[in-house]
Design a protein around this nucleic acid. Structure first.
Lengths: 198, 198
DNA sequence: TCTATCATGTAACCAGTTACATGATTTT
DNA sequence: AAAATCATGTAACTGGTTACATGATAGA
């Protein structure tokens, strides 16, 4: 029986990881996440951030360290990671890296209901998807290139390489699927089964 | 500006799609989803099902058709898809198939924080992941084979082929990543940057 | 100085999950 | 016939998102 994590939101992990480099207040965590583009892999929005920090506090992974008031700006509370928090980061990371989790990609939903669309329409739509995928791939490659040229070590971009690997695989898959759906055999079969209403 | 869907949960789409084949009560929708293994691609649980059906009703995509009481079993309400519901299915499917959406895979989170783990530990963990990925791949292939032998046409399994394509790509990526992390260059660089605290 | 935009946080709302409830059927 | 399991639904809880609020700076 796997004990669930006290805090399940990946944003919580990101926060803990940031805090490993020193105490800070929530807004700054958010700023850094965005600056480093971590929000491409971890869903981020301010509301969730404050919520998650509060969850971490209740769970004992962080403590309120001090409340700074610059006499301007609303009061900002600074948080620091605790020993348990530190432990949680490593434990969580080990799980994330070491064990694959079942995913529910959006496209999977579309595919599992593909038969409601006519072969002709499916082919048309998949063609558009292919174009969009290619465009996205190019964008990512461009970003990676300029970032690396800017001096960022490659390890900090593995996530993007992963994304590229998945995108390439999907493009390949879609290309083949299109060919399959074009076969007269399939078109006929679809007609026979679903062909009544227009 | 994209107008958001009144009902956003993919389970809602699955329900509408089932209802295209005729009116039925929620429990049966659930049963079918599971029978056809759609719950591998669409997150399903009973609570969400009733919630989503209610959302669909409020949105005007389904109507309460009748309330059957067999004098046994709790009262079951039968729902039917409306014209708007029918329209929504197609519109939604077109979006799902035609336009890629940004995904947040779990592994991406792990990768984007990879640097908190030592190269040695990363390599070890990635090795385990690789094994697990291979196992899962084999499982899926086996299931697909027996299902097809059972007479189910191939189109009803595209989702699983997609899953396989992604898994293969991930395995390949992980294999290469392991090699990269083993390079003395990388190990040294990591030591230099993060190496202080054991 | 009026207006727009940034920095920062809170609170209300909505969606999703877990736990509970209850009658029917099957197994021991 | 007692216990276990299935069929079916509801309700309470928790998490996440959106919308709102407010002071500060900067641009017109």
């Amino acid at each position: 029986m796997e004990k669930r994590r006290k805090v399940a939101n990946p944003l919580g992990l990101a926060v803990l990881a940031e805090l490993l480099t020193g105490p800070m207040h929530p807004y700054e965590m958010g700023r850094r996440l965005q600056e480093h583009g971590k929000d491409r892999n971890i869903k981020y929005n301010r509301g969730s951030l404050y919520m998650v920090v509060e969850q971490l506090r209740k769970a004992g992974f962080v403590t309120e360290q001090e409340t700074v008031r610059d006499t301007q700006r609303p009061e900002r509370t600074v948080y620091a990671v605790t020993a348990e928090g530190r432990h949680e980061v490593y434990d969580w990371m080990r799980e994330l890296v070491g064990k694959p989790r079942h995913e529910y990609p959006h496209f999977g939903v579309g595919l599992s209901l593909l038969s409601v669309l006519s072969p002709a329409e499916s082919v048309e739509l998949l063609g558009r998807r292919l174009a969009a995928l290619t465009e996205e791939t190019d964008d990512i490659r461009a970003t990676v290139r300029t970032t690396v040229e800017g001096g960022v070590p490659w390890v900090f971009l593995v996530e993007e390489e992963y994304r590229l690997a998945l995108l390439d695989a999907e493009r390949h898959f879609v290309t083949e699927l299109i060919e399959y759906l074009k076969q007269p055999d399939y078109v006929q079969a679809w007609q026979d089964i679903f062909g009544e209403k227009t």
